[in-house]
Every structure is written in structure tokens, then in C-alpha cells.
């Protein structure tokens, strides 16, 4: 049996769970996608420690988490600035570094963004459930224990042991990729087939207003507040929902469907956020503002494959 080591959880916050690229091939059974809600930060964290695309990383929402290293570990933190400290000293953001056995890593509270990603050289060891390690609390699937439970005090995070005598890599994230999540988030948006059912004024407002991120937001969906959008369709037959779909319930306040969304839904949809726009939205704190910029499907497709190919 391979030796395993890793972290011990000393304190747990609102939500921390292992996430990979998501769970696929099972949507027809009603099983959600899961996976890192900020694919961008997740991918860079894994890249910094030379993990392949698809490796699970720890997604830390909001903070309040304390992890003790059970041995020397080479790791990287990306995404939100959650006031991370190692024995009182802030580790370098968007960088890989060494953490010594016995040291304590703490994520306090968000200063910029909402979700940080912790990747470790060798990768977290977890049993894939239906092809993925992504933890989905609601469905009891994946995560560090295979049961979807979020990380709790006393839980161990197992890490595959690798020879780390030689620092594995000396990688640096390009400055332009180290996103600052403060200020207005300008999100790209692909108009969908039902856009023509929305009133002209609603279409105008969608693209010309700033929308406030509602506090009733989670890994399933992110609600936005603004002028009520009017749609000619009121009652719709439920149909399959893709990542980033923007659905508009009768109250006219859009909901962007994220990784843990229900697989089908019956509200009219204005369109879809491309994956990287979802990533940026996932870092928006409640009360912050977003705006939408239309982009063609072809352009969104090109941007996405260009992004993924950097890591594969």
C-alpha cells in the first residue's frame, strides 16, 4: 500500500471540499456536475504543483479553515485572498511553496473573492465516485470521504506521497492570470434561443445595467438583483440545464446555474455564461456588482479551448 500523508483539519469553516473538473456521463440519472466553481483558479493551482488537469484540489469557500501539515508538503494556493497565513505569515499568493511538517495553514476571511484553491504536489488522494472526486454535499457523493461530506474538524486529507527532495517545479503564473476579484466583474454572455421571448427593454437592461450579487447564492446557483426582466413565456416544460445557464423565474431576477445545479429546470433562459465567466462570477461576494457583455458562441468556444489547452 502506498504511504499516505497530508493534512489534519484543526478548524472547519462554512464549506471546504475536494473538487476536480466535475462528474460526467451521469447527468441523465439526475446527478449533478459538481467540480470547481472557479475552474480558472483551480486549474492554475494544480498547474503550479505539476498536477495534471482533472486532479482534485481543495476548494475553500469563505475561510475559517485551519489545516496542519502532517509532513513536508509542496503546495500552491490560488483564487480568492482569504487572508491565508502559515504560522502567522502570509504565503505567496498564486505561487507554489514548501510547507513544513507541523506548520498550520489558516484561511481567515475573504479580502478579495470568495473561494481559494489549495493544490498539493502528488495530488490529494480520494476515491473517485462515478468517475469524479468532486464533493457534492446534497447528493452525498465524492469529496475526501466519498460521501460528499464537507471537511470537518479532525478529518484527514490524504496526499499521495512523492519524492519532494527535488523541488518539483519552479512555475510562475503569468501576472495577467492572477485575477483581482474586487470591483465590477464584466462577464461574457452568449445569448440563448429564448432571448427573443424577453421584452426589448429587458434585453436592453440586461446588458446596460449593473447587477448585484444576491447573498442567496451557492454552488447550485448565483442569484442577481436588478430590474425585473420580463419574458413572454411563463410556464415552461422542464428541460436539461447546461453550466452557466441564466434562468429567469417569474420574479424577473436572473439566476446563473452553477456546478451543483439541478439537471433539469423549467424557467425561461436568456442565455449562457461561458465557463470562464462562471469562474469569475463564483468569486463575486454578495453585494458586489457584475455586468454582461455579449460574445458569440464561436468566440466563447475558442476562448475556452485555448484556456484548457494550456493545461493539457
Amino acid at each position: 500500500m502506498a504511504h499516505v500523508s497530508g493534512f489534519e483539519t484543526l478548524r472547519s469553516g462554512p464549506l471546504a471540499s475536494l473538487q476536480d473538473a466535475g462528474r460526467f456521463g451521469v447527468r441523465h440519472l439526475g446527478i449533478t456536475q459538481g467540480g470547481a466553481v472557479d475552474l480558472h483558479a483551480w486549474a492554475w493551482a494544480n498547474w503550479l504543483v505539476a498536477n495534471p488537469w482533472g486532479a482534485p484540489a481543495l476548494e475553500i469557500t469563505f475561510g475559517g479553515l485551519q489545516l496542519k501539515a502532517m509532513e513536508d508538503l509542496y503546495l500552491a494556493i490560488s483564487g480568492a485572498d482569504l487572508g491565508a497565513e502559515i504560522d502567522g505569515e502570509p504565503p505567496p499568493p498564486w505561487s507554489a511553496f514548501m510547507m513544513r511538517s507541523g506548520q498550520v495553514l489558516e484561511f481567515k476571511a475573504p479580502r478579495s473573492g470568495l473561494r481559494a484553491y489549495l493544490a498539493v504536489f502528488g495530488g490529494f488522494q480520494a476515491e473517485p465516485v462515478l468517475g469524479s472526486c468532486s464533493g457534492v454535499v446534497r447528493e452525498g457523493l465524492g469529496g475526501h470521504d466519498g460521501q460528499g461530506r464537507q471537511l470537518a474538524v479532525g478529518d484527514r486529507l490524504q496526499v499521495r506521497r512523492e519524492a519532494i527532495e527535488n523541488t518539483p517545479c519552479n512555475r510562475a503564473v503569468p501576472e495577467i492570470e492572477k485575477l483581482d476579484y474586487t470591483g465590477l466583474a464584466e462577464l461574457e454572455f452568449v445569448l440563448g434561443a429564448q432571448a427573443g421571448e424577453f421584452s426589448g427593454v429587458s434585453l436592453f437592461e440586461f446588458f446596460n445595467r449593473q447587477w448585484e450579487v444576491d447573498s442567496r447564492s451557492d454552488r447550485m446557483g448565483i442569484r442577481l438583483q436588478g430590474p425585473a426582466l420580463k419574458c413572454a413565456i411563463s410556464n415552461m416544460v422542464s428541460e436539461g440545464l447546461a453550466l452557466g445557464a441564466v434562468q429567469v423565474p417569474p420574479d424577473g431576477q436572473p439566476i446563473v446555474l452553477m456546478n451543483d445545479r439541478q439537471t433539469i429546470g423549467g424557467y425561461p433562459r436568456l442565455g449562457t455564461l461561458p465557463p470562464l465567466a462562471c469562474s469569475r462570477l463564483a468569486q463575486c461576494q454578495p453585494g458586489s456588482e457584475v455586468s454582461f457583455r455579449p460574445v458569440s458562441l464561436e468566440r466563447a468556444h475558442r476562448d475556452y479551448i485555448e484556456f484548457v489547452r494550456r493545461f493539457q
Partner: peptide, 20 residues
Amino acid sequence: DLVPSYTTLLVQYDPLRMSP
């Protein structure tokens, strides 16, 4: 992935292998 429903089929394909 495929998501069949009452009147529709959502077809999710790998963008790395196919253009829209």
C-alpha cells in the same frame, strides 16, 4: 452528457474534440 426530458434532449459534447 445527455439530458433527456419531456420535449427536449440536451447534448453536451467535448469542445476540445468538436466545434459548435
